[in-house]
Nucleic acid binder design. Structure first.
Length: 276
DNA sequence: ACCCAGGGTAACT
DNA sequence: AGTTACCATGGG
């Protein structure tokens, strides 16, 4: 059956393709498909929500959670738009929602993301799933920690992930052998959980913040990649405005899309970082 | 040929 | 504690 997922203000394309998840593909103007963990979904944009196609009733709670339907986005946007720059960014980029993703998938995906671009990250993640994920009728699941932990670096050469191979393996091994009790980080504070993630080789401040935000929904996380650093320089030399408090993660995602893909609405600074 | 990409590590001051 | 070269790979 098809199911209407209520999600006020949702912009499906921005949410799925803005670089917080890497396994979604656009099928037509309003329809997308992808796999989160081992769950396949075909989904279409609707007004203030989306249509989940051919879905089992038992899977609805998973997707409600994934699309963060428990968060009141109109309320959040009203709060953070007290900041002028954010108010402007929201006009075209306010439809982005955070996706509540699996911690291990998020960890490995963002280890792969370092010094890399979104298109190539998606390719590496896809090859990772095809090589080591469980196959089902609609594609490949994301690999388990157990499966990846038993591999050697040479096994990862088909991914063409380069120097990140040893980081991927360290993340998988520390997760599988419990050196980092990944699924217990939900219960820790932002700071404590971050300290645990930083024990993984290849995980630094930025990757840790992405995992904490997209994998554990720690809203204090404000990942500072090269684009956000440009936002901070240009708009927030004094630091993050206080009205973002409690919603830093959502604010970050909106600003990330704003600076990367402003479609001409913002004056370019000598064309320094116009989108490719 | 050079620079950059949702950065981190190791080796320097 | 704060810089900097280097790290594979692919696109512009």
């Amino acid at each position: 059956m098809d199911y209407f997922l209520k999600a006020p203000l949702l912009d499906l394309e921005k949410t799925l393709l803005c670089g917080q998840a890497f396994r979604w593909k656009k099928l037509d103007e309003i329809t997308f498909e992808g796999i989160a963990g081992k769950n396949y979904l075909k989904i279409s944009q609707a007004d203030d929500g989306a249509i989940l196609h051919n879905i089992n009733a038992s899977d609805i709670p998973f997707w409600e959670n994934y699309f963060d339907t428990g968060t009141d986005y109109p309320k959040v946007l009203k709060q953070i738009s007290k900041d002028k720059v954010m108010k402007k960014a929201i006009k075209n980029h306010g439809g982005i929602r955070l996706l509540r993703q699996d911690p291990f998938e998020t960890l490995i995906s963002f280890i792969i993301s370092q010094n890399n671009n979104i298109k190539r990250i998606s390719g590496i993640v896809e090859r990772l799933c095809e090589n080591f994920g469980e196959k089902s009728e609609n594609g490949y699941a994301f690999p388990t920690p157990q499966r990846l932990a038993q591999l050697e670096e040479v096994d990862l050469t088909p991914l063409r992930a380069g120097f990140r191979n040893r980081y991927i393996l360290d993340g998988a091994r520390k997760t599988y052998y419990g050196d980092v009790e990944l699924y217990k980080l939900y219960d820790l504070s932002y700071q404590q959980a971050k300290q645990a993630l930083l024990k993984i080789v290849g995980v630094g401040e930025k990757v840790a913040d992405c995992v904490l935000l997209f994998g554990f929904f720690k809203m204090e996380a404000f990942p500072k990649d090269v684009w956000i650093k440009r936002v901070m320089e240009e708009f927030y030399p004094e630091g993050i405005p206080s009205c973002f408090e409690g919603y830093e993660g959502i604010a970050q995602q909106i600003l990330f899309d704003y600076i990367r893909n402003n479609s001409g609405e913002r004056k370019q600074k000598e064309g320094t970082y116009a989108k490719s």
